[in-house]
Design a protein around this nucleic acid. Structure first.
Ligand SMILES: [Mn+2]
Ligand SMILES: [Mn+2]
Ligand SMILES: [Mn+2]
Ligand SMILES: [Mn+2]
Lengths: 218, 218
DNA sequence: ATTATCTTTTAGGCATGCCAAAATTAATAA
DNA sequence: TTATTAATTTTGGCATGCCTAAAAGATAAT
């Protein structure tokens, strides 16, 4: 059964096993889904039954081909809705995730495809994440982390890996938004903070923050 | 708890007790919700507990003020989404209801208000039903049924009371759509069918169909 | 190799929503 | 009014998803 719960599990497994086939632990799933580990065990048993995942006891879980297809479908829906909310309805990039968490479960492919078409089939969502097309194909990007930035290096912000409102509002306050061009002026010895020039202003970016900013080398 | 189930019950009770305070029977609820009458009894007991309805055993149910407020909120969401799907995304009036059944449950007032605003706060949905504003106020209309039409009478179609795709597609085929102007040429003695002129074509409208077309007298 | 720690699983429960069958109540007809 | 029919409620069950506490398994440290 493709319940909302199943959809959420599959999507989350997919997001946690970033580099395709990596195995996901129960703990990480429990954390991400805000659910007790015992409940995760149960759920995985069922998902295994349904052939959506391969679940090996006390080892970990990975998606089957069927599961991956469903997961990618969810990712598409989520990101299309996020993009729509931001681009067409004027929601902030810190607001869209939560609403998309609900909208993604509306069962109507035509709806998603119409929204996508209306926006010219965008390839990236407001956080810079790639949007799979209707067939599940993505544009794979090869960006790096700002924390790998070098002194005098010039970069362009392409995405973020932390989607929490707190983080996103913080970035916005300093104009560290998608598309912004930044230059690394210095890297502090003490704590590894980056002093970057962004929009003609100097901003100090902590390693933690830098680690969640995805950039292209210019 | 305001679950999806609760929202559906309240909305349905509201829709079934058309003339405000009319009592709704379990049977009608069971039919509309496609649920076993036994389940309806249980649900109503809980809704009564929650003070959303006044439920009197073996007699019937009506909404409390609190329940009515929630119901009207649901009606607003449903109709805003229907209008949005039709006007902005190009869905047919026969397609929008089903999708809106799901979208109406997304918990975000800002979203609904943005959609409404974007469309200029419409007062009627694609079926001619009035859309309550954010405060729950509607424009009460005083239309009549086409089945009450008189020979030589001229009318304008303002709405429909059957929202099923079959019915709506049938109407569309004969151009009997909202805004269309019709003139009653004759009423057949045999079965009460109306012969109406619509878009310069004669159409025979059965009593059953006419009974689901809402018109304004011109 | 053994202990301590952390993760996962099992066992036993609970809430929500639904159903079918039987019992009760209400409404209608005779 | 009494019998028949129809609507409602009660009873006992079931599936889904979640939880806590206890048991078992895996990992890491001494
Ligand atoms: Mn979700
Ligand atoms: Mn995103
Ligand atoms: Mn609904
Ligand atoms: Mn409608």
């Amino acid at each position: 059964m493709r319940t909302e719960t199943v959809e959420n599990y599959l999507k989350t497994i997919y997001n946690l096993s970033s580099d395709n086939t990596a195995v996901v632990t129960n703990q990480k799933l429990a954390d991400k889904l805000n659910i007790n580990p015992a409940s995760v065990t149960e759920a995985l048993r069922k998902l295994h039954e349904l052939k959506y995942v391969v679940y090996e006891k006390s080892y970990g879980t990975r998606l089957t081909a069927t599961g991956a297809k469903m997961a990618i479908d969810m990712v598409r829906r989520h990101r299309i809705w996020e993009t729509y909310l931001a681009k067409e309805l004027g929601f902030g990039w810190d607001e869209v995730h939560e609403i998309a968490e609900e909208l993604e479960h509306v069962k109507n492919d035509k709806l998603i495809n119409k929204l996508a078409e209306l926006m010219g089939n965008p390839s990236f969502d407001p956080h810079g994440d790639p949007i799979p097309d209707a067939k599940g194909k993505f544009q794979k990007n090869k960006f790096v982390n700002l924390s790998e930035g070098k002194i005098k290096g010039a970069y362009k912000i392409m995405g973020v890996s932390d989607h929490s409102p707190v983080f996103l509002k913080y970035l916005e306050k300093h104009q560290l938004i998608i598309g912004a061009e930044v230059q690394v002026k210095n890297i502090e010895e003490v704590d590894g903070s980056l002093v970057v020039l962004c929009n003609k202003k100097e901003v100090i970016v902590s390693p933690k923050v830098a680690g969640n900013i995805i950039v292209a080398v210019k």
